[in-house]
């Protein structure tokens, strides 16, 4: 199977060292993490990680099982093939003079992004969307000279009323 980007969602105990365990596991099994985001979930004491990795289906399934095996992992799902909402946020500091400012603001409008800081020589733009949207905005802004970029990495959620954390932990099984 050809390698492709997979989105894994992991619910883990909110305890010190868990991120280290997860990151270490990917390193040890030879996976390069594209992005990883961690934050609170809807449940107290449970953190939610969104991990994007490159790999074939079988190898990602293997790493998913290894991840599930960590004692502090409550649940891991590969949601790549499901219908999902994917978002990423970026802050972009771009050079802006009186000559270019209005042109930049037009682009920002088209992308429904926000300007969150203005100075004599630059603007900070806040943008949210999927990676493609962020990439194309960045491409357009390149002509004005981008000074600094920070991206959060992907977060994701399945569409519809089913949730990743319910109905609780599925029993570990190869048949799943």
């Amino acid at each position: 199977m050809a390698p492709m980007k997979h989105t894994l969602v992991a619910l883990v105990e909110d305890k010190p060292g868990v991120l280290n365990r997860v990151a270490n596991l990917f390193r040890r099994r030879g996976f390069n993490i594209d992005s990883i985001t961690v934050g609170h979930s809807e449940k107290p004491d449970i953190s939610r990680m969104t991990i994007v990795v490159d790999g074939s289906g079988a190898s990602v399934e293997q790493v998913r099982k290894q991840l599930d095996k960590l004692i502090e992992t409550v649940k891991v799902q590969d949601i790549t093939s499901e219908s999902i909402v994917v978002r990423e946020m970026a802050l972009i500091k771009v050079k802006a003079t009186s000559a270019t400012r209005s042109e930049i603001m037009q682009i920002v409008d088209i992308f429904r992004a926000n300007i969150v800081d203005v100075s004599m020589e630059s603007l900070i733009i806040e943008v949210t969307g999927d990676e493609e949207k962020l990439d194309s905005l960045l491409n357009l802004l390149r002509t004005f000279e981008i000074k600094e970029v920070v991206r959060t990495g992907r977060i994701a959620m399945t569409r519809g009323s089913t949730t990743t954390s319910e109905p609780g932990r599925k029993p570990i099984s190869a048949e799943d």
Binding site: Q62, A174, E175
Partner: peptide, 17 residues
């Protein structure tokens, strides 16, 4: 007993965890 061992090295026709 370890689901991560299933299919790790060898293709399996009937896995039982």
């Amino acid at each position: 007993i370890d689901p991560a061992e299933i299919g790790k090295n060898v293709r399996v026709d009937v896995p039982i965890v």
